[in-house]
Design a protein around this nucleic acid. Structure first.
Lengths: 227, 227
DNA sequence: TCGGCGACTGACTGGCCAGTCAGTCGTCCA
DNA sequence: TGGACGACTGACTGGCCAGTCAGTCGCCGA
């Protein structure tokens, strides 16, 4: 077996072991046993246990980052938003083992590593937030605290994906995409008036700055109420 | 110091240590150092490291369970829903250290423990789902897959609470409650027609069964489209 | 004053496991 | 044919830490 295959084989085995046992309970001995090599071989390919894990996670991050596209307001927005949701969901579901770890076992490692994961999350959230603020300028995102919207979105996404990855439920991916989109679009509670009105594109002349949101949180809701 | 105080002191110290280091990196030595007792003393009060953690988590679960009330459709629904959100948020934020662990470090322990946490989540989700189905019968929850709604809701809630507990942001609690409610009520995307219509109480005569939802997921959205 | 008792102590042990390294094995080229 | 080299091996070690237990301390009642 060539060096590259051996390396891949070790990563495959590691992913498997990590996802069933979690990071801490995964022993290097388990990994090498599954990969059918001696322990020493492991250390010819990876500096230590942590580095194979970091590499595994890094791959997933990259794949997600590469898949998401910036939304162009001049063409079909719904489809583009759905495309992005689809891309993220696909990247995660294609690697259920790793996703499981990332969403549940991830932390509790040494601080440096936790920081890496958090910074990825924060980056994603910031990106999403920026998109939403832009969307507010275009009238396709309700007024309100874009940061909160981003938080809610990631939370809902994570939870649903995690559910699909843990249990053997496995909804069709397109259904995941559609449902998530629908939820972001209209919530589900039908009590009292909803947040702000949903006008057809109201000509984005309301403000000159593209980022008029920020800390409009509770006020936004009050506005909705009074409207 | 009496036995009860000592015990409390140990739990306080453990909570502190667990939340900063995570379960695995928290050493019994750290806990006893913080509590200013010798290691042996720890074992006079707790069988082992895991049992103090389990006890800590159990307390939190109980507090949440006790705080949530069944919604009575005959009086102010919005206020009752908000009350429940508020109760959960309060229980979690009152114990930020533990919440942090539960939402990030929780898993990766022995399977029995992971099972305990999962079953609590599943229980909460089932409860919420049942409420939502009831709500659908009353016309205060949009048609669609109630299980998914429950998933989204818990996801969004977890993410926001986690954010408030990790960073030192600390939004006012009432704002958390209001924003979450607003999000559940109307989402934020303003692209195309939203999920089903939001009529004022449409006399719940649509169906006789109180649980007409289930697997109406994607169809529900299509219905919204065509309407 | 004594001795019994419950609370507390902390040096120690035993097991576990990440990581090491001296050595084997097979291949290829001179 | 032999020897050099790279891949692989697995018994071993060193450190860490949960959990132990023989012993101290101080209080209280007789």
């Amino acid at each position: 077996m060539g060096k590259i295959e051996r390396r891949k084989e070790l990563m495959r085995a590691a992913r498997e072991v990590f996802s069933t046992k979690g990071y801490h309970d995964a022993k290097v001995d388990d990994i090498v046993a599954l990969a059918k090599v001696a322990k020493g071989t492991f250390y010819l390919y990876f500096a230590d246990k942590r580095s194979i894990f970091v590499e595994l996670v890094g791959t997933l991050f990259e794949r997600i980052g590469a898949a998401v596209l910036k939304v162009d307001p001049r063409s079909d927005i719904e489809e583009q938003v759905k495309h992005n949701i689809r891309a993220i969901v696909a990247a995660l579901l294609d690697d259920p083992a790793l996703t499981k770890i990332l969403f549940s076992y991830a932390a509790g490692l040494d601080p440096a590593f936790v920081t890496a994961i958090r910074s990825f999350y924060d980056g994603s959230k910031a990106l999403l937030e920026a998109s939403l603020i832009e969307g507010q300028g275009l009238g396709i995102v309700a007024p309100g605290d874009a940061r909160l919207f981003a938080t809610f979105t990631l939370g809902a996404l994570k939870e649903l994906v995690f559910e699909n990855v843990t249990a053997e439920k496995a909804m069709p991916r397109e259904e995941i995409v559609n449902e998530l989109f629908a939820f972001l679009q209209g919530g589900y509670l039908r009590i009292g008036p909803p947040r702000a009105a949903s006008q057809p594109p109201p000509a984005p002349a309301a403000s000159k700055k593209p980022t008029p949101a920020k800390k409009a949180a509770t006020p936004a809701k009050k506005a909705a109420r009074s409207g």
